[in-house]
Design a protein around this nucleic acid. Sequence first.
RNA 1: GGGGCUGUAGCUCAGCUGGUUAGAGUGCCGGUCUGUCACACCGGAGGUCGCGGGUUCGAGCCCCGUCAGCCCCGCCA
Length: 597
Amino acid sequence: MRGGGHITNLSGTSRRTHRCGELRSEHVGQRVRLGGWVHRRRDLGGIVFVDLRDRTGIVQVAIGPGAPPEVRRVAGADLASESVVEVEGPVTARPAKMKNPELATGDIEVQATKLAVVGPAATPAIPVARGKGEELPAEELRLKYRHLDLRRPEMQANLMLRHRLLQRARRTLSELEFVEIETPILTKPTPEGARDYLVPSRVHPGEFYALPQSPQIYKQLLMVAGFDRYFQIARCFRDEDLRNDRQPEFTQIDLEASFVGMDDVLGYVEAVLVDLWDEGGHTIARPFPRMTWREAMERYGTDKPDLRYDLPIVDWTAQVKPLGVPFFESALRDGARVRGLAVKGGGALSRKDVDQLADAAKQLGGAGLAWVKRQGEQISGSVGKHFTAEALGGIGVGDGDVGLMTVGPDRVTSPVLHRVRQEVIQRLGVKPKIAHAFTWVVDFPLFEPDPETGKPVFAHHPFTAPHPDDVARLETDPFSCRALHYDAVDNGNELGSGSIRITDPAVQRRVFAHLGLSSVEIDARFGFLLNGLQAGAPPHGGFAIGFDRTTMLLAGAGSLRDVIAFPKTTTARALFEGAPSPANPADLAELHLEVKP
RNA sequence: GGGGCUGUAGCUCAGCUGGUUAGAGUGCCGGUCUGUCACACCGGAGGUCGCGGGUUCGAGCCCCGUCAGCCCCGCCA
């Protein structure tokens, strides 16, 4: 094998025997060859110490007075930060008082007998080795000099975790008899959903491919084709404005299975998530609890509730109505509900805290936030004078607690109270009951009102099957219809979503018609799917796990950009390579394109 | 498309109420140093105060515009 067959260490190559971070006391006495980057150099005159770094860690190389003159010359003059060196020499135990307990390799060092700079480095534009307490460089610079930023141990750990998660997902799904199949990147524009990235065709003037927003239709056709269980680590593209947790291209663990119902799909996804979290060092229990969408909205005001904490939203209409609070009166007459949060220990919230909560509520279009605080016999707050101790007891506000409440239509009060709940938890520093609170959210509505017209529009992609009990009301009462759609949620983060698909081509045509597509358009855009469904389609459904977000959570990273090697900025630019950039005129001409000035 | 925050040395930041020659730490360059591990110590170089315009006797600081990065709303079937 390598190095003439006597090296069993996988790290070894024809140029090195070990990686830097793996040397220990057991290697003392061995002669090793290493390659790595100069992390730091400490030149004491007669002796020079070099911290040599690779992806496994750091080891100290010592060049003492006994080292060969050439080695001493290189160590004294040529070892600029971040240059690549190869070093050879014996591993020695450090004297007792010179061990470094903060370093995994701190009991030993390498005495250099050969030393060569094989990759000289210009002074780095941003530091790789940071001093204690030194802030990270501006993110703009980290993205521009990504090759340097990626040398930092934190980024290396994130990307190596990402690697392990990918391998684990592949293994778990393969063991569950899922088949990994790739689908096209050059595909067809979709009429619904996010904006597509378009790719002009050279061979077909005026025609365009689109990059996939997801492999949705392809994976359904794979079910029609009989592959039974499919998965893919799929790159997806959506041309929409970005966020901290949204990139224009992103990765999903995409899966689909045949002859399944919802329970089967949830089981497969749980298996993957449990293994991914295990890979990240967390034990989580199966099965995950389930909650209907309606319940989530009612108790938490969001479809991705954070169940690490108690503190549900409660309907206080019945208790509050008799009190005759002026702030609520007119809305109550219009049939609105009063909903609120009984915050245990909320007395610790200052007047300023409550005002800031109210401001946050107003930003979301809420009427404002009413509050009542009880401390011993004293009852205070914006609506305090309307409450007796008994009335407070009736809504669960005891001594030292605060009741926060608002009035209005659910579509306003739900997001307001969700926001207030999060803020309260954060401001009071409430400790989570458990580290990871997974839940399924099921029974999503099939339609939602168009924000402008109020007309029903599909809440999900148009391949989602309606709940069989609700199909009869599709036309008569669309908003009451549920979809066979489900989300996986962890600690208030949406990890992914899926559904059972429509397999009846007639139903699928009705849904497209509902979207306002003529039968000509339907055949032009979705003919290949409908043909498939007519060719003998098994019942099927699937899921897509947002892999970047999952990795971000497991890495404890603050941004998606910290778990993606080469991410885009919030304006979808790549600062490292400088994309996008103007095309040269000859290329445009060949693509039959003109750019308007 | 809208709102907010930030932009000063290679990097991280300070810079008062608008007032003399814009500072610190680190990095970089030169020097001393045989047990350091953010080595220490001595010396030095290094600035389009993002960019453009305006107000003012005078602008890093105030005003307008613009660019970039970040955060949020809209958007993301």
